[in-house]
Amino acid sequence: NQASVVANTLIPINTALTLVMMRSEVVTPVGIPAEDIPRLVSMTVNRAVPLGTTLMPDMVKGYA
């Protein structure tokens, strides 16, 4: 099973992502692959992402 990116904290809308905000976890449904974490750093989220939420491609500006 592939690990996905999961919010390690509440990420407010329009926040630039940092490494400490994200962790990898095997979850269903599958979200952004964990190997993309380095690429996500400094990208911003377009909605509030609660703790434990899987990051989906449409949640990160410029990812999809």
Rank of each mutant, 00 (worst) to 15 (best):
N1R: 15
N1F: 11
N1M: 15
A3F: 11
S4M: 02
V5D: 00
V5N: 01
V5R: 00
V6N: 00
V6Y: 02
A7G: 03
T9D: 09
T9H: 14
T9I: 08
T9L: 14
L10W: 11
N14E: 10
N14L: 06
T15R: 07
T15S: 12
T15G: 06
T15L: 05
A16I: 14
A16R: 09
A16C: 04
A16F: 15
L17F: 02
L17E: 00
T18C: 03
T18F: 03
T18M: 08
L19N: 07
L19P: 11
L19M: 11
V20S: 12
V20L: 14
V20W: 10
M21H: 13
M21I: 03
M21G: 03
M22K: 00
M22N: 01
R23H: 10
R23K: 11
R23T: 08
R23Q: 05
S24C: 04
E25S: 11
E25V: 13
V26T: 08
V26D: 07
V26L: 14
V27Y: 02
V27H: 03
T28N: 14
P29M: 05
V30S: 12
G31Y: 02
I32V: 07
P33Y: 09
A34S: 12
A34E: 10
E35M: 09
I37H: 02
I37P: 00
P38C: 05
P38F: 15
P38L: 13
P38G: 10
R39E: 10
L40E: 00
V41L: 12
S42W: 07
M43I: 03
M43S: 04
T44L: 08
T44E: 14
V45I: 08
R47E: 09
R47F: 12
A48D: 13
A48V: 11
P50K: 12
L51G: 15
L51F: 11
T53E: 14
T53K: 11
T53P: 00
T53G: 09
T54W: 02
T54H: 03
L55N: 01
L55Y: 00
L55P: 00
P57W: 09
M59K: 02
K61P: 15
G62R: 06
G62C: 05
A64R: 03
A64Y: 06
